[in-house]
């Protein structure tokens, strides 16, 4: 059986290797993948929307639909984990009090967490807000924000993290992110443009169409950041406590 598996893997691998014989050389500027749409994006991103980071420009504007549904996929994944695992919420959250039980933990860990958490949040907001001009954007910033809350859950305990970022709040924020994204698209539609065509926003904002597209990208990235942050924390909370939302790691 083991030999048979190795045979299949070897066969598939050699077929794929044979297939790469026709592939372009690595790092070839004339490779077909780099010849068709991407030069258009690179040449027109600045003129179209004044966003130097072409990755953000494609992510939120040229391929806005794609990213919108990616956000919906993440939202759905978070909701399905919630449905699969979460059991202890109602009984536990009713007696949610602000009397935080401080379990005796390592003080070095607690102090390091206190110093690091504001820095992590600040950096995450920078990554989201500056995603037009430097590497970054909603997905990355959202994950960093979520990591900040996970750090609290790890350094203190799950109870404190849940009191700060309680289940109703993180569900609301996850839904809010998707709503922001689709509302921006809908507003563009109502103003006479296409769905997610942010240049229509220049009719209600005192900016040129190109700058309106840049602002639209920012709004959409904030929505993505919200959803990703809430879902990352919710996944961690559910998986590490098997849905009971207490004790944890």
């Amino acid at each position: 059986m083991r030999f048979f598996n190795l045979l299949i893997v070897g066969l598939v691998g050699s077929l794929l290797l044979w297939g790469t014989m026709d592939f372009p050389r690595w790092a070839d500027p004339n490779a077909p993948a780099s010849r068709h749409v991407s030069p258009y994006y690179l040449e027109h991103a600045i003129d179209d929307m004044e966003v130097p980071n072409v990755v953000s420009a494609i992510l939120a504007d040229y391929r806005g639909y794609d990213t919108m549904y990616e956000t919906v996929v993440i939202f759905c994944a978070g909701i399905s984990i919630l449905l699969l695992l979460r059991v202890g919420e109602t009984a536990y959250m009713k007696k949610r009090s602000l009397k935080i039980r401080l379990v005796r933990r390592n003080p070095i860990l607690i102090i390091a967490c206190r110093i690091l958490f504001p820095a992590i949040v600040l950096f995450a907001l920078y990554v989201i807000a500056h995603g037009h001009h430097s590497p970054g954007g909603g997905f990355q910033g959202g994950v960093i924000l979520g990591a900040g809350f996970i750090l609290i859950a790890l350094a203190y305990n799950m109870h404190i993290a849940i009191v700060i970022f309680y289940p109703r709040l993180h569900r609301f924020i996850a839904a809010l992110g998707v709503t922001i994204y689709s509302l921006v698209g809908l507003i563009c539609l109502l103003l006479g443009g296409n769905f997610l065509d942010y240049s229509a926003l220049s009719k209600i904002l005192p900016v040129s169409p190109a700058e309106a597209r840049s602002l639209g990208i920012l709004a959409v990235e904030i929505g993505v950041g919200f959803t990703v942050m809430a879902i990352m924390f919710s996944i961690y909370a559910d998986l590490s406590t098997r849905g009971r939302l207490r004790r944890g790691l």
Partner: peptide, 19 residues
């Protein structure tokens, strides 16, 4: 930039589906 965009979303969706 196109593969970067596609893989950026693929990574995050990959994490969510792994969850």
């Amino acid at each position: 930039p196109l593969p970067h965009v596609l893989m950026l979303t693929a990574i995050v969706v990959g994490v969510a589906t792994l969850g």
